[in-house]
Every structure is written in structure tokens, then in C-alpha cells.
């Protein structure tokens, strides 16, 4: 069941579009903002609200890598693995992160603090190598800088 707040927020998105179903990506993000991820049940609820089939919502939900269909940690690390960042030393950063957190791409730490996900491109090649933690972007990364940044996310 969608909460009243979720429902209201989704309905606020719907008014921007000629048809309710056009707001499906926003609706999923609303759910994710409140719950951290989108469950099977939430997919069905969003579908019912937008007059879509669960299959149609699932198609959208699984297309966008920022929609999480599994539970994730409290903080999401998106480490860019596109070519600019790779040239600028992304591999070293990845090794460092993996060693430090003990997880690989697509995994969550045992204390559920971090989930590590690769990002195709974060649109900040001038700052390469970059990563995003939750909604914050960090550039010109080095292992040392990484350690310091992660401390800010309890």
C-alpha cells in the first residue's frame, strides 16, 4: 500500500503530464525516496495508481539504474566507470573501495551502510575520476580523499 504522502506526491507529478502513466519514473522515485528502494508490491501499487500493468511499470523500473529493485544500504556510492574516469585512475579507486568496504559492485556492506554501484557516466568528465554519494558529487578523487569523504556518511 502506498502511504498517503506517497500518493499525494505522485499525484502532484501526474498533473504535469497529459496522461498519468507518463509520470511513472517520478512515481518510482517518490516511492524510493520514502523507502530507499522499490519492492514488488510497490511496483504493483504504482501500476494500479497510474492505470498501468505491473509489467509495464517493471519495464521502466528495471530500465533505470537509479531505481533500486532490491534493498540497498543507507548510502549509495556511484563510482563512474566510463572511459574518462578510467583513464584518470578509476581502477585504483575501485580497488581501494573494494578493499576498504569489503564489497564489489552491486553489493552492500554487512552493516548496511554503503551500496556500491557503477555509473555509466556522471556527466562530470572535467573532474574525473568522479563518484556520487547519495546526491553529492565528488571529483578529482584519490584514495586518501575517498577515505575522508566516506567518513561524512555514517
Amino acid at each position: 500500500m502506498l502511504s498517503d504522502t506517497e500518493r499525494q506526491e505522485i499525484e502532484r507529478e501526474i498533473v504535469h503530464y497529459p496522461r498519468a502513466r507518463a509520470a511513472v519514473a517520478e512515481a518510482l522515485m517518490v516511492v524510493q525516496r520514502h523507502r530507499g528502494w522499490v519492492s514488488d508490491e510497490a511496483v504493483r501499487d504504482v501500476a494500479a495508481l497510474l492505470e498501468m500493468t505491473p509489467d509495464e511499470v517493471e519495464g521502466i523500473a528495471t530500465f533505470y539504474s537509479m531505481v533500486f529493485r532490491q534493498p540497498v544500504g543507507r548510502h549509495i556510492i556511484h563510482l563512474c566507470d566510463s572511459v574518462s574516469c578510467w583513464i584518470m585512475g578509476q581502477e585504483t579507486l575501485l580497488e581501494h573501495l573494494q578493499r576498504k568496504l569489503g564489497i564489489g559492485f552491486g553489493e552492500t556492506t554487512a552493516d548496511r551502510r554503503f551500496t556500491l554501484i557503477p555509473a555509466g557516466c556522471l556527466g562530470a568528465c572535467d573532474l574525473a575520476p568522479v563518484m556520487r554519494v547519495d546526491d553529492d558529487l565528488y571529483g578529482h578523487l584519490t584514495p586518501a580523499k575517498l577515505d575522508e569523504i566516506l567518513e561524512r556518511y555514517p
Binding site: 500493468t53 509489467d55 509495464e56 517493471e58 519495464g59 528495471t62 530500465f63 539504474s65
Partner: peptide, 8 residues
């Protein structure tokens, strides 16, 4: 409407 492209 019950068959889709899933994933990417």
C-alpha cells in the same frame, strides 16, 4: 500489456 522488455 503483460509482456515487457525488462532490464537494460
Amino acid at each position: 500489456r503483460d509482456f515487457e522488455v525488462l532490464g537494460w
